[in-house]
């Protein structure tokens, strides 16, 4: 589809507008990392610091705890993402395509957690994980949240839209449900997996309350926990928080750059390329 000149100009203007409105806060965060302790909160609003200080960035980078927290959190987030995609996709396929006894009941059962406010079960799930001896292990951060009603619901909605034709042909040819799932559905799932995978990754990455409750081992300190402690140890230093948040966002942006290319014009599941 060739575009006319006005269309090209329109696209360019729109892209610039969106970029500016999105990038401005990010740039502010990165630049505020160069500001002094209270300069960040100074009124009236100033975009650039009076003096560019490197000490916030260098203080964080010099702390061995920071790199360790980044490493532990990246590893945890990747395992968490893989585990939740596996668990939720399996259930999503069953709910989208299989007929089984009690399907309605299990569907409501698996969807209900979406409506449970975190506050309602925060205390009691803490009691459960400590009873199971999971405190101060990576498992307590990874396993409890991995079954996600919202993620299962999303992937199921996606699978509902897949055409039936190929599946029915495969069934006639004697393929099992399992083969259809792994050979027809999984290869077509890159886009929903990337969208949900990044969301899982970010949810793990930004978690604060749960790690603070369950992790006391300094070797397992998560990145948001680290930033919180780092700031309060130094008396609410906002410049430091901004510098830390900027550095902590780098791995996520990197992942985004790598994986966005999977959200593309998909080969249709119809099997006709």
């Amino acid at each position: 589809m060739k575009k006319t000149v006005p269309q090209r100009i329109f696209s360019a203007v729109l892209m610039t507008l969106i970029s500016v409105s999105v990038m401005f806060p990010l740039a502010w965060m990165a630049i505020a990392g160069f500001k002094g302790k209270t300069e960040v909160l100074r009124s009236p609003f100033q975009f650039f610091p009076q003096m560019w200080r490197w000490d916030n960035y260098s203080a964080i980078l010099a702390d061995p705890q920071f790199m360790r927290a980044m490493g532990v959190t990246v590893v945890g987030a990747l395992i968490f993402t893989a585990l939740s995609l596996t668990v939720n996709t399996l259930a999503a396929y069953a709910f989208a395509r299989l007929e089984f006894t009690g399907k309605r009941f299990w569907w409501v059962y698996c969807l209900t957690p979406m409506f449970i406010p975190a506050m309602a079960i925060l205390l009691t799930s803490f009691m459960v994980v400590s009873e199971l001896g999971m405190l101060d292990t990576l498992a307590v951060l990874i396993i409890p949240g991995s079954a996600s009603a919202a993620q299962m619901f999303f992937i199921r909605q996606f699978y509902l839209g897949f055409p039936m034709a190929v599946e029915e042909a495969a069934l006639v040819d004697g393929a099992t449900r399992w083969q259809i799932f792994t050979r027809v559905f999984l290869p077509q799932s890159a886009a929903p997996f990337v969208v949900m995978g990044i969301a899982s990754y970010l949810a793990y990455w930004n978690a604060y309350v749960w790690p603070v409750l369950t992790i006391t081992d300094p070797d397992l300190t998560q990145i948001m926990q680290f930033l919180g402690n780092f700031r309060s140890d130094r008396g609410n230093d906002w410049g430091l928080l901004m510098a830390g948040s900027t550095l902590a966002s780098i791995p996520t942006i990197g992942l985004l750059l790598v994986f966005q290319r999977f959200i593309v014009n998909g080969v249709r599941i119809s099997g006709i390329k």
């Binding site: 698996c110 799930s125 396993i143």
Partner: peptide, 11 residues
């Protein structure tokens, strides 16, 4: 897997 995980950590 989903049913069991939800049972232990949510329900």
């Amino acid at each position: 897997p989903m049913v069991v995980l939800l049972a232990v950590f949510v329900m």
